[in-house]
């Protein structure tokens, strides 16, 4: 399989999307691009149509200990080498547009992020719980509480 051409990708993103897509070197073994949340569907369709980047490994969400008001969601892609799209969301109202229209395989990953971190995904049917029981009515379990371990 052909490897992802990272330089060509940056040229295209810089040209078609005016808002800054910052490149970081924060994760070892991955090329990381930070994008704002509303640009996610546009960037994903560029990756899919122009660069044939169809393989989404997973969607990871996490909280940073030094940054209590934000949630970070990563979309980890793979094509010969790894590419991560990094999105920062406000913790009060985390909303993202679903990718299941373009990549049906994102369904399970979005359901897990929704139930574990409380993120809401729009433009999809509904997000039933994947791993938690049906009658779970507590807080999203992966968000840190006040009392530590």
């Amino acid at each position: 399989m052909n490897k992802l051409d990272v330089d060509a990708l940056f040229n295209v993103l810089g040209g078609e999307i005016d808002q800054a897509c910052i490149r970081q070197d924060s994760i070892q073994n991955e090329v990381v691009i930070e994008i704002p949340a509303e640009k996610l569907p546009e960037v994903s369709s560029i990756l899919l149509d122009q660069f044939d980047l169809y393989h989404l490994s997973t969607i990871t969400a996490e909280e940073r200990t030094g940054d209590p008001d934000y949630l970070e969601v990563q979309y980890n892609f793979w094509k010969g080498s790894g590419l991560t799209l990094l999105i920062r969301l406000e913790k009060d109202s985390p909303v993202l547009r679903s990718l299941t229209g373009m990549i049906p395989g994102a369904d399970f990953y979005e359901r897990e992020v929704a139930e574990m971190f409380g993120v809401r995904f729009t433009h999809r049917a509904e997000t039933p719980p994947l791993l938690l029981p049906d009658d779970w009515d507590g807080d999203p379990p992966m968000l840190q509480k006040e009392e530590t371990k």
């Binding site: 994760i27 073994n29 991955e30 490994s57 990563q74 790894g82």
Partner: peptide
Amino acid sequence: VVMRSEAPRGELFYY
């Protein structure tokens, strides 16, 4: 760090 390897059932992903 992100680490990938080939488990018997396919690609295993660790972050």
